[in-house]
Design a protein around this nucleic acid. Structure first.
Length: 637
RNA sequence: GCCUUGGUAGCAUAGUUGGCCAAUGCGCCACCUUGGUAAGGUGGAGACCGCGGGUUCAAAUCCCGUCCAAGGCUCCA
């Protein structure tokens, strides 16, 4: 629907001559003069009619908003076909306009409507203030919104979900399900309590800016980019490298698990029948791309599901190939609401490792689910999170839990976690999962964010027409597991920074795992003449990310700066070291806020030590010039 | 998206009953200093005070709009 608004001193019109589609004019009032009105020239377009009630509602919202802004006394709806080249049929248009008129009156606005389908003369006096001429396009399309203004129309799936009742429990000991408000959290399980409160009450009284936001800037990791859409961040060399290493690690882990890596497009047609249902559930979170006539016809994916499902549909899959695992490191887009975006925690553009596993039976799926549960724990552990750093939530339907085998299965998961787990029981299934878990990180401000997750999906194979051939030659729909072993890469970075901050609060020195540290070893010459010795050392320290602080600064200053960068190993080189062929190394992990741990060691010892820290993690070269004097600053902190 | 608060040099802040060349620290540049474990010294450059409009003799300061950020609400495939 196209709207053109004129705030007018008056409008005067006269219906002159009927067209074929003219409506009867009630009371024969062919001539009208209306003072102090917001005149709304309106064209109803093709496609508006199917969404009639939402279109009317949105249009009424717009009109009311403008009426209030310009303090108009009344509204005149004026049918004006020339605003669009894609008109709806006259009958439909008239009906919609009548509906809109009623809606405006129902909202307490004085509304009149010029007769439809007549040749009319009119005189209009525009007030000419800044807001006196405005236009709006009102669109409601599945999932996609052309104008701003979120579309809150709920799909059936959403309504079902809202009706779905769920119950929270804690499983302290395997098998012992306790209602969540009866569970004794104590000091040991304070984080689980925080997580539960977060889930149920959503209480988040916080007045600090999130520690990781400050850190991501100060450590030259990432930053906001005001010239993009909010939630699309820029990554500086150090941040880019950390992100790449995490990506490498997750990719290697899924490959070792047996997944094959693919890449699928990041945008899809909103008109695709299989995608429609999916989209309908999350109408407001779609990043849409405008197509012809300003209608959105492409959307950016919010996960890798679409691409992989569309790909899988065309594959020939035998039961012998199952379980089949497909992995993708998927740049994904979710148009989160403005107020929900925070630093690296909640973004509109992020990188989602997404693995889909096709299984023949629910038993197979459960077996795989358990393996992936353990895989996720392992991946998080290697990234730098022990189970103490996250809380486990397992969610499933009541039906699922009635089965003794399934019950034992859940208990097993709790046993593996080795700590109490939050359990959510759904009375009925909504959306596509029957069982899912997440590992949730609790940050310095008591907010919870999901990292790893696995879901069992029993619907999408059918929806997308994905089949495999069973031993009898019959076509079957597989069960699909969705797994993100680490959760979004950016979110891992957020959690690492928040964890470091929590360590600092606890009296430790904050740092990143050595394999992720942008600089693993910094060498500080006491005077310029020691640079020669350092240059001799460099070849022996190959394969480490090391840099040299060759700036014209005091040793103290350089030590302090290295500390501010959280560098795990800082080696000072002066006369003694040159003489004795050693390095004097400050070891951050063993230092405290009060005292530094300094150790004299040989180059080989140091190299070995760092290699032990790093083990067999992915490696990337130093992302910046190795001489600090040659480095530009990316942020001013 | 809504409500609240904020936006001043690369960064962190001061300045706002409207009024002289917008201040300080860090960083940057130059010089001095060649140094031994958490900020060495001196000097210099750098700001159309988020953006757009308005009120006024005069706007960083007041008003309107807009963008960005933080907190709350809501939400998270």
């Amino acid at each position: 629907m196209q709207l053109l608004f004129i705030h007018a001193d008056f409008i005067e019109y006269e219906a002159k001559e009927k067209t074929r589609i003219a409506e009867e004019i009630a009371g024969g009032r062919k001539k009208e003069r209306i003072e102090e009105a917001l005149v709304v020239f309106t064209a109803v377009e093709r496609g508006d009619v199917e969404k009639e009630s939402s279109i009317i509602e949105k249009a009424a919202d717009e009109i009311r908003s403008i009426v209030q802004q310009v303090h108009a006394e009344r509204v005149v709806l004026y049918p004006y076909a020339h605003l669009s080249s894609e008109l709806a049929s006259p009958e439909q248009s008239l009906e919609l306009l009548q509906g809109l008129e009623e809606e405006l009156r129902a909202r307490g606005m004085a509304a009149t409507r010029a007769p439809f389908g007549w040749y009319k003369s009119f005189t209009l006096s525009c007030k000419g203030h800044p807001l006196s001429e405005l236009s709006r396009k009102i669109t409601v399309l599945e999932g996609a919104v052309a104008k701003e203004g979120e579309q809150e129309r709920k799909s059936k799936a959403l309504e079902a979900e809202e009706k779905a009742v769920s119950h929270l429990f804690v499983m302290g000991e395997p098998g012992n399900l306790v209602e969540v408000d009866k569970f004794e959290f104590g000091a040991t399980h304070a984080n689980l309590r925080t997580f539960y409160l977060y889930e149920s009450e959503k209480r988040r009284e916080v007045d600090k800016i999130p520690p990781h936001v400050e850190l991501m800037k100060r450590l030259e990791i990432a930053d906001y980019e005001p010239s993009s859409d909010p939630g699309n961040l820029r990554f500086y060399p150090k941040g880019r490298m950390i992100k790449a290493l995490l990506e490498d690690y997750v990719r290697n882990s899924t490959a070792a698990y047996g997944a094959v890596e693919v890449e699928t497009p990041i945008m899809y047609s909103v008109w695709h029948p299989s995608l429609k249902d999916y989209l309908e559930r999350f109408p407001a979170r779609q990043y849409s791309m405008m197509g012809k006539e300003g209608k959105p016809d492409l959307f950016l994916r919010f996960a890798a599901c679409f691409g992989q499902f569309l790909m899988s549909k065309e594959m020939s899959i035998s039961y012998k190939n199952l379980p089949l695992k497909i992995f993708e490191l998927a740049p994904s887009f979710r148009k989160e609401k403005r107020g929900e975006l925070v630093g690296l925690r909640r973004l509109r553009k992020f990188t989602m490792p997404d693995m889909h596993t096709f299984c023949a039976t629910l038993e197979d799926a459960l077996a795989e689910f358990k393996k992936q549960y353990e895989l996720c724990m392992h991946v998080l552990e290697e990234i730098g999170f022990t189970p103490r750093n996250y809380e486990v939530a397992i969610r499933f339907t009541r039906d699922f839990y009635e089965d003794d085998v399934h019950k034992a299965f859940i208990e097993d998961l709790v046993r593996i976690a080795g700590k109490p787990v939050l359990i959510e029981l759904w009375d009925q299934r909504f959306f596509y999962f029957v069982l899912k878990f997440e590992f949730n990180f609790i940050d310095a401000l008591g907010k919870a964010s999901a990292l790893s997750t696995v879901q069992i999906d029993v619907e999408n194979a059918e929806r997308y027409g994905i089949v495999y051939t069973d031993a009898d030659g019959a076509r079957q729909s597989p069960i699909i597991l969705h797994c993100s072993p680490s959760g979004a890469i950016e979110r891992c970075m957020y959690a690492l920074l928040e964890k470091a901050y929590l360590d600092k609060e606890a009296g430790l020195l904050p740092m990143l795992p050595v394999w992720l540290a942008p600089t693993q070893l910094r060498i500080i010459p006491v005077a310029e003449r020691h640079m020669d010795y350092i240059k001799e050392l460099l070849p022996h320290l190959n394969g480490l990310r090391l840099d040299v602080d060759d700036r014209d600064e005091t040793v103290s200053k350089k030590i302090r700066d290295a500390g501010r960068e959280w560098i795990p190993y800082v080696a000072v080189v002066g006369e003694k070291e040159v003489e004795r062929k050693t390095l004097r190394v400050t070891i951050r992990k063993e230092s405290s806020q009060e005292a530094q741990k300094v150790e004299e060691m040989s180059v080989l010892e140091l190299k070995k030590r760092i290699e032990e820290d790093v083990q067999n993690k992915p490696f990337r070269a130093l992302p910046l010039p190795y001489k600090l004097s040659e480095r530009a600053k990316f942020t001013g902190g």
